[in-house]
Each structure stands twice: as structure tokens, then as C-alpha cells.
Design a protein around this nucleic acid. Sequence first.
DNA 1: GGGTACATGTAATCAGTTACATGATTTA
DNA 2: TAAATCATGTAACTGATTACATGTACCC
Lengths: 207, 207
Amino acid sequence: MSSRELTPTSYLVLGMVAWLGPSTPYEIKRTVAATVGNVWSFPHAQLYAEPARLAEEGLLEEEREEGGRNRRIYSVTESGLEALRSWLGQADGLPYEYRETALLKLFLGAFGSAGDTAAIARRQANFYSKRLPVLEAMLTAMAEVPDLKFCRAVIQMVETIDRAVLDFWEQVAGSPPQPPEGKDVGASRTLLRQYAQMYAKMTSRQG
Amino acid sequence: MSSRELTPTSYLVLGMVAWLGPSTPYEIKRTVAATVGNVWSFPHAQLYAEPARLAEEGLLEEEREEGGRNRRIYSVTESGLEALRSWLGQADGLPYEYRETALLKLFLGAFGSAGDTAAIARRQANFYSKRLPVLEAMLTAMAEVPDLKFCRAVIQMVETIDRAVLDFWEQVAGSPPQPPEGKDVGASRTLLRQYAQMYAKMTSRQG
DNA sequence: GGGTACATGTAATCAGTTACATGATTTA
DNA sequence: TAAATCATGTAACTGATTACATGTACCC
């Protein structure tokens, strides 16, 4: 029936509806925000658009609330559950994507001013140091509830990464790489090219 | 001159050209792949499209190679450098995005079969356990070369995250959360809703 | 009763992804 | 010299982001 390839967003929505039972896009959004949304943001417009698509494909079923807000309410169909199960069965093994603007700024720090990198590092460290205690509170709250173990696993992963990343940025803030004097890129220019070439060789065929 | 807001991709390209000197999209691509590309993938089509845009906006300058492959060669302009510097000066402090399909599968593991989650976890662990030694080789190679310190910092971050994530997946593989018997979601259904609500309260106003 | 935050959508744009296509070097 | 990989692009599609818009509930 459907021809398009489902996206991660598709499966997330599918899974949330399966889990929450009949639910509105807003409920999906809220639950996502509380879990994977911490590190993988799904803008709410998407969480309204995606269920609509899935409904067209017969993987969700849509009904409208009578009266009141006239909300859209979605439930999983059997073929929706099937799609979800089949997806869960594949261990495709794609690596993570980690996107942090600050990492790009660290990378290109040579072109900035002296204090830039340290300021950026402190800013990031500050953010994660504030999020960590919240996560820990969540984790202890969930520890009692075995039914939330899957949810808990997600928060545990967020915590794991936050810790690592916080540590990293604190180190950078402590001893930030300094931009070279006089903007002399000349030296690093050829070195960077050599590095890229070496890297390509090391990763294509055998090292 | 330009009206659009520059994207992270824009600044990355700007920075790479500034760093490499006059360069072709392919050289940009290769260098990106060797550095941030490890965790933040920029498809090559983008690294051909973006310099073209930047050239239109006067932030890069484009010339064509005479004869041969007739390649496009880009260099930074003064206003390009300015844009880069000004961007580096802002510590906007956005948190990272971490996207790993396996994390979604872990989250939704309740709907899969018994062995699924463990298989997925092993698969991820396997990948990172293979990448780590490569990164370490790179790091020791770069340790000698002070001009590559910014580049090295990036690889260090990748290593940091890989370690943390590898550890996490190994733990999951060791004792994976089991899907409930009989697909009884009923219990966790309301708990999940409660959790989402609690989370919303904890993160909006003060906890 | 007025303001602020929660809730619920739609529209338009564009970056990003995938796919297609082919020329130039190596390497076997 | 054939195969494989490296290098270099373009076209088309569509999901994702941004922005707009408005209704409803709650708090002071």
C-alpha cells in the first residue's frame, strides 16, 4: 500500500501511539520530549505531519474528537504494529550522529579570537552540568517502576553521554587550544591536507 | 548582500576553505570526512551545493580550473572570514543532538521479540569497538604535531563519546530489558503518561 | 479579568538526502 | 585492458525547520 521508506520519525510515532494507546499529536510530542527528545529533537510540526502520513498508509487510524477541540486521535493498526516489529527485528547497525555547533566552533577555533573557545566550552559545560541532576532525579524516580525500564534506559543513555561530554568541555575550558599568532595558517594548511589523506587511506582499505 | 541565515554547514565550508586555502569541493569533503564527519555526516552533494551558495553571497570566490577536469576552486573572501569570526565569537550554547536509530529501537524494545534489543546492542558495541583503535592511532600520530591541535581536539571528542557509548551498549547487551510477557502494555501505558507529565513539570517551571 | 503558558494546528520554504551519471586514475 | 575505486558533478524529491495563527486553560 505504502511506497515510501519509513523514517526514524515514522517508527517513533508508530511506537509512541502503540505505547500510549489512542493519542493526540500533542501527547506524542510531550512523551517524546520527556524521553528521546532530550537528545534527538523532533519539532512539533513533524509530530503533527507524520501521523497524518501514517494514517494515509494504513499504519495508523485517525478519528476526530466529537465537539470540543475536535482533536485528531490516532491508534495503531495491525499492519502498523507489524511494521514496527519488523523494524525492531533488524539490527542494521548505523553509527550515531552527534551534532553540536560548539564542536564545529572548537574545530575552527583557529580563526577566532583568543578567549572564544574557552567561552564556548564553559557555556556547554554549564548547560550539561545543569541537566545532569535533573536526569538523575528522573532515574531514581523510575528505578522503582519496572514498567518504565525502556524509558529509563533512554534516560540512562542521555546521562551517560552528558557525563562524557560535560567532562570533555570542562577539560577544553581548562586548557583551550589557542589560535596561532598572526593568523599564520600556512603551516597547518599542508599538514591538514596530509592528515586527511592519511585518514582516507587508513579507513578505506586496511590500515 | 545575503539574506539567508547561514547554517552550520555554511560555516564548516567557510572554515575548511579558510584553512585549506583554495580548494575544490572534493578536498573539503575529504577533510570533513577525516574530522567532524566521523560523527556529523555531511553528504557530498551538500559540500558541492554549499560553496556555490556562499560564492553567490560573496563569502567565497569561485574560479574554474583551466583545462583538465575544469574543477571549481574556492577561496575565502574578506567578508567570508569576517562572517566566520563573528560566528566563532558567539557562545550561543545549544546542546548537542544525538541521533542513533538503535536508541529508538531500545526505547521501543517492548514491542519487539525477546532477542532483538541484545542483538542491536551488540551490533552497536561492535562498531564502536572497532572504531576506537583507529581513533587512538590518529590521536597518537597527531600528538607530535602542535599545528593539528584543533583537529586533534575533534578526534578527542569523538573518542570520548565513542567510549561512553560503547560502554553503554555493552551494558545493554549484557542485561537487556526484556519485553513484557503477553504484550501487556496496559500497565506501562498510564505510567508513561504520568512520567511525561511529571517531566514536563520538572523542566518547565522550577523542580 | 488580564496575562502567560499550554495546546493545536497549517503553510511555505529550503536544506538535506538519495539517486543518477560519468570522467579519471589506479591496480590487478 | 578490464575492473574497481576515486573524483566530480546535477536533478529531483521530501522531510524538516521556521513562521504564522489561534484557541483554551490556568494563575495572579
